[in-house]
Design a binder for these strands. Structure first.
Length: 144
DNA sequence: GCCAACGTTGGC
DNA sequence: GCCAACGTTGGC
């Protein structure tokens, strides 16, 4: 099982929004990613992989955990190429649980063990990888 | 609102 | 294929 971190601006789509959809049994398609590195990360995701939900811009904190419930498939909102194929991919996710104590970016930056976290090193990447050690530490910091 | 980082585009 | 210009993201 691999671990990931996915960003969303909460005024566009928040973890609470995801929880509401999950409660209604509606998978959320993580559409709108238009960056190849982020797309490749989504293509590397497997069913059951877990991901942190990070609120960018507003909050700047990890607020919850979600699970990949469908592997990468064409993003229906993506442009098509000359052959009519969708260029971009997305995965489906469902909320698992919120973090009892959200972990802020400031806290992450102040934690030496997390200096290599992709969220910090590649700050503009919207879908990034989290190592098992980083995952365990962040869960602990989040009160789990 | 500014700016740094970085991806993309387009001229050569 | 290089590189300058430009656009976007996201933290501050």
């Amino acid at each position: 099982m691999a671990y990931w971190l996915m960003k969303s601006e909460p005024d566009v789509f928040s973890f609470a929004d995801l929880q509401a959809k999950t409660a209604r049994n509606e998978p959320e398609e993580w559409t709108g990613v238009r960056n190849y590195a982020a797309r490749n990360n989504m293509r590397a995701m497997a069913l059951g992989d877990e991901a942190f939900f990070y609120h960018s811009n507003i909050g700047k904190e990890i607020v919850g955990i979600m699970q990949v419930v469908a592997a990468a498939h064409p993003d229906s909102t993506g442009e098509r190429n000359a052959k009519g194929e969708v260029v971009w991919d997305c995965v489906d996710v469902a909320a698992i649980k919120p973090l009892p104590r959200p972990v802020t970016l400031a806290t992450i930056k102040a934690t030496p063990e997390l200096a290599e976290l992709e969220l910090v090193k590649l700050s503009r990447l919207s879908v990034s990888k989290v190592s098992p050690d980083e995952w365990a530490l962040l869960c602990k910091m989040g009160g789990l």
